[in-house]
Each structure stands twice: as structure tokens, then as C-alpha cells.
Design a protein around this nucleic acid. Structure first.
Lengths: 138, 138
DNA sequence: CTGTATCCAAGGTGATACTG
DNA sequence: CAGTATCACCTTGGATACAG
């Protein structure tokens, strides 16, 4: 088992990291809500009437999201109590996702961030050009 | 081209995705600022006096970040014009990162999100427990 | 329509060692 | 002190096919 030099240290680091997460759970939550899809989904739901949308509506409203990510993200949001999932057992099943009050409070913040991104995009773009030009001058 | 193997369709999808990014650059920016480390770094800088911190101070202030991620994230922030990088060529080199006005405007928002995460953590936690218990009852 | 399960490519991420 | 470079990993995320 002398092999385990690297592997052992990995494992050790891994555990240390997990312990850290346990001690710093806020980081976890922050990382979760900092997710790209979370922002888009919560924003989309927040803008919708009744803060509610169907599964397929979400998929259509959010460009580039895959079924997998949509389902996965919605699950975690449901688990965290940010959205509720309502199944209507009609013949084609209908599922609605609705923002809870908790989710709405976050939705406002994330919408602001999204708005910031939209309104400051050209500014950031300009900075990028400047930076890239300066870097190329090496 | 009956080939139409999986690889071909991959490539096609890939190009479509890139085209999408080009058409939807806001999504790029949103994804960038939704990054976990971006939030932590910008928040840390925002809370600091003079909105400025040294490289090592940042590393100490943000638990769990590696040199690589710190440098990498700071570079992208600099490129986007959210922070400025100032090198003081003393004997032990000193580098300060300072939030620009643009960065500060984002910093306020991200701090709010961070604050939300901190203040609603127990609530989310409670929801998770409920959800997990309900799921286990399958 | 709304998922679930599997496979697979790609990139994010950290550990380590080295430079100025 | 402040990086840079390399390597190895392993999670993320998409495509696909299948199910209720």
C-alpha cells in the first residue's frame, strides 16, 4: 500500500475540504445559488405571472438549457424550498413550478444581478477589448 | 452524408451553441459573475477599506480558494474592468487589487446575495430536511 | 408531456513544484 | 510575496434513449 502517497493525500485533502464545507455551510448555499441555471430559472419564474411556469415553458424560456440541467436544478430548488412542484394528473401530465415566498425574495436579488449584467455588458466589453489589446502589446 | 454519426451531430450542436453564445452575450456575462469565487472575491473587496486588498490577504480572507482559482478569477475580473491590479515593486513584491466603480456597483448586489444566503440558511436547511424525509418515504 | 438513466467529452479544480 | 506551469482528477453538463 505504499502506492497511496498521492492518493492518500488526496483523500486527506478531500476530507479536510468536506469538513470545511460542514463548518462553512453558507459557502455551500452561496455556491448553489450562484449557479448559472439557478439564476436564470429563478429570474424566469420571478418574471412570470403568478410566479409559476410549466416545465416545458421553462425549457423554452431559458435558451440553452438541457432537460437534464433543468430537471436537476428544479429538483435542488424544490429541495431547498425555493419552488413548489405541482403535478396535475391530466392525460398529458402537467407540472407547474411556482416560486415560494422564500424563492421570491431571492428572485428579486438575482433579477437585479441579471439586470446589472444586461445594462453593463457594453462597459465590460469595452474593458475586455482594452485589456486584450494591452496584453497583446507584450 | 449518411454518416451523420454522433460525432457529426456533436459538432453541429457545438457550433449552434457557440452561435447562441454570440447572440446571447448577456448569458456569458451572467455566467461569469455567477461564479462562486467571483462572488466571494468581489464581496471581500467590497467590504475592505478602500475596496482594496493584497493578493495574500484575499487568499486568507476567502477560505478554500486555491492560488490557481484566485489568480485566475482576479485576472478575469481585471480583464472585465471590475478590479485594478497595482504592482508595487518593493523587495517583496506587493500587489493590490482594488474594486473599480463598476466593480463596486456589482459588489453591492453580490453582497446582498451573500447576505441572503447567510440569513436564510436555516430556512433552506429546514426545507431540505423536510424534503429528504418525504423522499425517503417512497 | 415530463421526466429518468446511461454514456461520454470537456473543462473546472486542486496539488505540487518552480520562477522572479 | 506573487505568481506560473504542469499534471491528474473528477465533477459538470450534454446527447441519447427509454419510461410513466
Amino acid at each position: 500500500m505504499a502506492t497511496s502517497t498521492a492518493a492518500a493525500r488526496r483523500e486527506e485533502a478531500r476530507l479536510a475540504y468536506d469538513a470545511f464545507l460542514e463548518e462553512c455551510p453558507t459557502g455551500q448555499l452561496l455556491a448553489r445559488i450562484s449557479d448559472k441555471w439557478v439564476g436564470l430559472i429563478v429570474s424566469a419564474l420571478g418574471q412570470a405571472e403568478d410566479r409559476s411556469l410549466r416545465y416545458s415553458d421553462l425549457g423554452r424560456k431559458i435558451p440553452g438549457v438541457s432537460q437534464k440541467m433543468l430537471t436537476q436544478t428544479l429538483r435542488s430548488l424544490e429541495r431547498d424550498g425555493l419552488v413548489t412542484r405541482t403535478v396535475t394528473p391530466t392525460v398529458p401530465v402537467r407540472v407547474d413550478y411556482r416560486l415560494t415566498d422564500l424563492g421570491s425574495s431571492l428572485g428579486g436579488l438575482l433579477s437585479s444581478v441579471k439586470l446589472w449584467a444586461e445594462s453593463h455588458f457594453d462597459e465590460v466589453s469595452a474593458h475586455r477589448d482594452t485589456f486584450d489589446r494591452a496584453t497583446a502589446t507584450s
